[in-house]
C-alpha cells in the first residue's frame, strides 16, 4: 500500500499530536486550576461500588482513547489517499489483434476447440488491443479493439457460454447476407475492424475458418488477400485440416496464400502449438515500439482505512454510550 500524498501522513500525525498535546495540556491546566482539593476520599473510593465503577470507567476511557487515536490515524491515512499502484505497460504496445471466427454450420464441430484456443490467446496477450468478430453470412463485432482485459475476459467468457448454449447464430445478426459462410467477406469485415490509419501499430487477424463458401460473396478470396496485404495486416489462419486430408485443396490453398501473402502463418486446427507460435509471431511484429516507460497507474484503495475508521468510530460511540457521556 502506498499513498498518493505521502507527506500528509507525517504532517497530519504531527498536527494531530500537537493538537492533542495542546488541548490536553490546556484542559489539564484548566482542570488543575479548577480542580477542587479534597481529602479523606477513601470514604468514597473505598466503596466496592466505586471500585467497580472506576474499573468500568478506566476501561471505557482506555477504549475511547485507543479508538480516538485509531480514528485520527485512519483519518490521516485516508487524507493521504491510499492507492495501489501498478506499473502498466504504456498504451500498449502497439499491436492490434482481431480475433476472427467463422461461425458457419460447417465450423460448428470445431469451434469449441477454436474458442478454447482463442481463450488461451486472450490470456497470453499483454498490452495488445484485442477485438472479436464473428461471421457467417454477415459479420458481427462481439467486442471492438480494446486493451481493457477485464472487459475482454468477461465478454469472451460470455461469448463462450452463449456459444455453447446456442450454437451457430450465437449473437444474432450473422445470417444477414445471401448464402452462408461468406468467408472472404467475413475476413474483409474483420480487417475493417481496425482503425483506418495504421499509424505505428502492427495489425494481425487471427482467423479460424474452413473456407467453405455457400453463396455469392462480394469479394473473392484473392481480392481479400490483396485488400488485407495492402493494409499491412497479418493473417494467422487456423484451419480444420487433418492429416488424411489433401493439404493442397483449393480452399486450403486460398487460406494458405492469404496467410503467407500477408506475412502471417497457417496452422491446422489440431496443431497444439499453434497458440504459442501465434503469440510469438505477433510479438515479433513490432512496427515501432513506443518508447513510453511503463506507466504507474494508481487505484484508490481507501477500503481498509475506511473500515478501520468506521470500526474505531463504532468503538468510540459504543464506549461513549456506555459511559453515558
Amino acid at each position: 500500500m502506498s499513498f498518493h500524498w505521502g507527506w500528509v501522513i507525517p504532517a497530519g500525525l504531527a498536527v494531530a499530536v500537537v493538537l492533542a498535546g495542546s488541548v490536553s495540556s490546556r484542559t489539564r491546566r484548566r482542570g488543575s486550576r479548577r480542580a477542587v482539593q479534597v481529602a479523606n476520599t477513601d470514604a468514597l473510593t473505598g466503596l466496592s461500588r466505586y471500585r467497580l465503577l472506576a474499573r468500568r470507567h478506566r476501561r471505557n476511557a482506555a477504549v475511547m482513547g485507543v479508538a480516538s487515536g485509531v480514528l485520527v490515524i485512519a483519518t490521516v491515512m485516508l487524507s493521504a489517499r491510499p492507492v495501489r499502484s501498478e506499473s502498466v505497460p504504456p498504451e500498449i504496445e502497439n499491436r492490434d489483434i482481431m480475433l476472427c471466427l467463422d461461425v458457419s454450420g460447417s465450423m460448428a464441430e470445431y469451434n469449441r476447440s477454436v474458442i478454447e484456443q482463442y481463450a488461451e490467446l486472450v490470456g497470453g496477450f499483454e498490452g495488445q488491443r484485442v477485438g472479436l468478430t464473428i461471421f457467417n453470412a454477415s459479420a458481427v463485432t462481439v467486442f471492438p479493439l480494446t486493451t481493457d482485459y477485464h472487459f475482454v475476459t468477461d465478454e469472451f467468457e460470455r461469448f463462450r457460454q452463449t456459444f455453447a448454449e446456442r450454437g451457430i447464430d450465437t449473437l444474432g445478426g450473422t445470417l444477414e447476407g445471401e448464402g452462408s459462410s461468406l468467408v472472404p467477406d467475413g475476413i474483409a469485415s474483420c480487417a475493417l475492424g481496425f482503425p483506418e490509419e495504421a499509424g505505428e501499430r502492427s495489425r494481425s487477424i487471427i482467423v479460424a475458418t474452413d473456407n467453405e463458401v455457400e453463396g455469392s460473396t462480394l469479394l473473392s478470396m484473392p481480392e481479400v488477400t490483396t485488400f488485407i496485404a495492402d493494409r499491412t495486416i497479418q493473417v494467422y489462419a487456423i484451419f480444420p485440416l487433418f492429416e488424411y486430408e489433401d493439404p493442397d485443396r483449393p480452399d486450403v490453398a486460398e487460406i494458405r496464400a492469404l496467410a503467407s501473402t500477408t506475412d502471417g502463418a497457417f496452422f491446422p486446427l489440431e496443431d497444439t502449438s499453434a497458440t504459442a507460435r501465434i503469440l510469438r509471431a505477433i510479438e515479433r511484429t513490432e512496427v515501432a515500439r513506443l518508447d513510453a516507460e511503463p506507466q504507474l497507474v494508481e487505484y484508490a484503495t481507501p477500503a481498509v482505512w475506511l473500515a478501520v475508521a468506521a470500526l474505531a468510530l463504532l468503538a468510540l460511540v459504543g464506549a461513549a454510550w456506555r459511559a453515558r457521556l
Binding site: 480542580a35 477542587v36 482539593q37 476520599t41 473510593t45
Partner: peptide, 11 residues
C-alpha cells in the same frame, strides 16, 4: 474535577 490532596487521585 476533584483531586485528593494526599493520593493525588482524580475522582
Amino acid at each position: 474535577d476533584l483531586v485528593d490532596v494526599v493520593g493525588g487521585t482524580h475522582l
